[in-house]
Amino acid sequence: MNNLPLKELLYKMADDQLILGHRNSEWTGFGPLLEEDIAFSSMAQDKVGHSLALYTLLNQLGESDPDTVAFTRNANQFHNSILTELPNQEYDFSLIRHFLYDTAEALRFEMLTQSSYEPLAQVAKKVRGELRYHTLHAKTWINQLGSATEESISRLQKSLDYAMPFALGIFEESPYEKQIVDNGIFEGEQALKTKWLTRVEEILSNTSLHLPDFKIIHPVTGGRIGKHSEHLQPLLDEMSEVFRIDPGAEW
């Protein structure tokens, strides 16, 4: 089998996890309360671990080793969705992004447990259990803050409206979408998006938040083909600084 469709899928998932993992780690020491500091730091560690598992699969398919892949590419070689690279901004945005992204990611890995590519199905079976804690965390806070005070509701709503076009970019289709679906590697971005929307609506229906009108929003795409916002390269520069100074550094 031609591996390009599979590699494309693995790269975009791994890059999403790495980049959002890095953003989450930027909350370490800055969380609005200690528990949130720990939560975002733990999710960062999980996500970087997930990216490692996926980069390892790529390595087994002939790509470079995980560290090289993670630390030596430039922004235009990354396949993450633009949503994941946006700066953390205020906590309300980070929480909304975490909710929208992890809801999609949990469903994606759930679907991938059925993948025809067995090594990916194995990783998915592992990761989906861990992601339950991420979605539990997101749901708990969206429920609480999404029905709390006027300020918490309006801030979350504003962030939700802002984040939604970027969140839709998660589902930007790959040029190999048909092969991926036909070969049973993954059910595809459209199927994922449908499930995601149902789940997001279900959770928001218990809060005072509402989804923006999809007729008037345009998905922000490009991330999957290496066209990123101005925010990614500075993130990569920071993330890879030690590696570039001393590639053989022992941690």
Binding site: E35, I38, A39, S41, S42, Q45, Y133, H137
Partner: peptide
């Protein structure tokens, strides 16, 4: 439960 996340993963 105070936090799903703790000192280690």
């Amino acid at each position: 439960m105070k936090n799903a996340f703790g000192p280690t993963l």
